[in-house]
């Protein structure tokens, strides 16, 4: 019973029509309150907040897929780029007083630039060693953010600007954040499109070759170092952009954004959704963003004295790897054309 259902879901997830319908639903969800249909708001600020966070993590999960999905390098330091983008953007607007658009682009570029030397160890270090190196790099970033004055120390930087970009409809909660939902959605879609196109280009073929047999790839003329760096730089760039959106949406940034727990969550989003699957990245991100929120609600209803999420999350990972190690929507690699 479960198998055909899963198959059906997988097929559905890979249909373009599904994507279009989902996007329409998301936009409707975001703007329905602005139509003033009822006295009450249909979707409150909280639901929109969850939507935004899910979309941001979709971008991050997609970006991590370059590294972990495409060239098969397990990274536990991806939050470093996410946080870096946030800090760069925060400092650009608050210290240099540049417009948000500049800060946004800059956050991606700086993250990519930092991704280059951080990707370099990945050329020499393999498998389990790379995991701890990326983890270590992330931790070092966090210690720097905690200890520097310019980054606001452990407390972080409050009061970041949240431009409305002319899209602000609801006047509940923190107003004018719809622009960020739209921006995150566009960013996620652009990234998804880029990845969809790259997968079946010469670059995507090189990624697939390196992932499956680096030595064979090299003897076919593919330079593994070049493509691994490319994957790291692409991944860092988009994670940086997502970090910028996130920090300005929250109008606040702290070292928590670069914590290893974030990195672990990002990696598990990739794995649970299914490495290299674009719909899988969205699924992983939404699932692991919404479930803890739901469980917090469960906790309140049942009056539990603890939050059951993390225990269940740990258990879920163990069970998932046993039952479906390739992730919910993970599939074999097949070039399309």
């Amino acid at each position: 019973m479960a198998k055909p259902a899963l198959q059906f879901a997988q097929n559905l997830a890979h249909k373009p029509a599904t994507a279009i319908i989902l996007i329409a639903v998301l936009l409707g969800f975001t703007f329905i309150d602005s139509l003033d249909l009822t006295e009450e708001y249909i979707f409150g600020a909280y639901a929109k907040h969850i939507l935004f966070i899910s979309l941001i993590y979709s971008v991050v999960t997609l970006s991590l897929n370059f590294v972990t999905g495409y060239v098969g390098q397990t990274s536990l330091g991806h939050a470093a780029f996410f946080g870096l983008g946030g800090y760069v953007s925060a400092l650009t607007t608050s210290l240099l007083h540049l417009p948000y658009g500049v800060a946004f682009i800059l956050s991606g570029l700086v993250a990519a630039l930092v991704g280059l030397p951080l990707g370099a160890p990945a050329l020499r270090i393999k498998g389990p060693f790379l995991v701890v190196v990326t983890y270590g790099c992330g931790e070092v970033f966090k210690f720097i953010a905690i200890n520097l004055d310019i980054t606001g120390g452990p407390a972080g930087l409050p009061g970041l600007i949240s431009p409305t970009l002319g899209i602000a409809f609801s006047d509940i909660g923190v107003t004018g954040k719809e622009a960020f939902i739209v921006a995150a959605l566009i960013l996620a879609l652009v990234l998804a499109f880029i990845m969809y196109r790259l997968e079946d280009s010469r670059v995507g073929h090189a990624f697939a070759a390196i992932r499956q047999d680096e030595i064979a790839a090299a003897s076919m003329g593919i330079n593994p170092a070049y493509y691994k760096l490319m994957a790291f730089v692409f991944g860092a760039f988009f994670a940086g952009l997502a970090g910028s959106l996130f920090a300005h949406y929250m109008s606040f940034i702290s070292p928590d954004m670069l914590s290893s727990n974030e990195s672990i969550m990002m990696l598990t989003m990739v794995v649970i959704g299914g490495a290299r699957s674009i719909p899988g990245a969205f699924l992983g991100a939404f699932l692991l963003t919404i479930t803890p929120e739901f469980l917090r609600f469960v906790k309140d209803v049942f009056g539990l004295s603890y939050d059951p999420w993390l225990v269940l999350f740990g258990l879920l990972l163990v069970v998932m790897m046993r039952v479906k190690p390739q992730g919910l929507l993970g599939a074999e690699t097949v070039f399309r054309r």
């Binding site: 794995v271 740990g314 998932m320 790897m321 190690p325």
Partner: peptide, 19 residues
């Protein structure tokens, strides 16, 4: 099985026990 699955299992077990 695949090494990544084993590693994610380790991560999961660690999160489970800790919490």
């Amino acid at each position: 099985g695949p090494k990544l699955a084993l590693f994610i299992t380790a991560l999961g077990a660690s999160i489970f026990i800790r919490n």
